[in-house]
Amino acid sequence: MTSAHSKLYSDDVSLVVVIVDTNPFFWAGAALPFADFFGHLIHFVNSLLLLNHLNQVVVIAAGVSSCAYVFDSGNAAASGSPDVAATFAKASRKVEEFVKQDARDTAGNGTVAGGGAASLFSGALSLALCYIQRVFRSGTRHPQPRILCLQGSPDGPEQYVAVMNSIFSAQRSMVPIDSCIVGTQDSAFLQQASYITGGVYLKPQELSGLFQYLAAVFASDLHSRAFLRLPKTLGVDFRASCFCHKKTIDMGYVCSVCLSIFCKYHKKCSTCGSEFSRVMPDLNSMPDQK
């Protein structure tokens, strides 16, 4: 029985925000061509919409230097265009445009160094959380939100602070972050994100059956997850990035006031401005940092 005071719909109505990696540097050399991947994604989005007519799906594309909303099932339904095929055609056109625009931005910035460019996941996560906050505040009853990250490219250590902040705000607003890695490397950021927010982290073995993974694991709503045997994370990489050079480090210096992390000793904290009067001895006696 739905009680009127709860602002949620019943258990199995979900709002899924899917963050899709559109990093051309990754997809150029990926085992699974982007077109196939996009096909799986559309299947997955359709199946979510099939499960419950109140389900809502938002797709956010994360490029190298920008991110944008590419699909919103709420808009598609509201605009009165019932032709779903047309809606998806529009979505794929939007992705195409986005990728082009993103490439132009990237070229303009000139920030990319070599092939190891990361996608802007921090921005995409923030967009997703903003969208969810807007739904929370809309006042009417809303579905249960969750975020699914489909990441291929490696983590960008320079986004560490922003990503961690997004993760903590997701945790605060009880939004689980699921992650599905379509690339070759595990992502430390997403491992932590799923671990902290209670989502599922999965790195599929066989990418050609991506839809099956998505349907089996990520399509299940939060309510039925309690009953299911879902993949468990074996280990989580808890390493942090330093604030000064954005490198992933095992050990480092931590500001005693604001807990900022540095890989080298500084006289003054660059984040909060506290001055460290005593000179730290050498690295060996330094507190272990997690």
Partner: peptide, 17 residues
């Protein structure tokens, strides 16, 4: 399909292919 309990929906989806 939509009338099913959540778990049944999930099974149906999983068996789809």
């Amino acid at each position: 399909l939509r009338s099913f309990p959540p778990l049944a929906k999930k099974y149906a989806l999983q068996m789809l292919y």
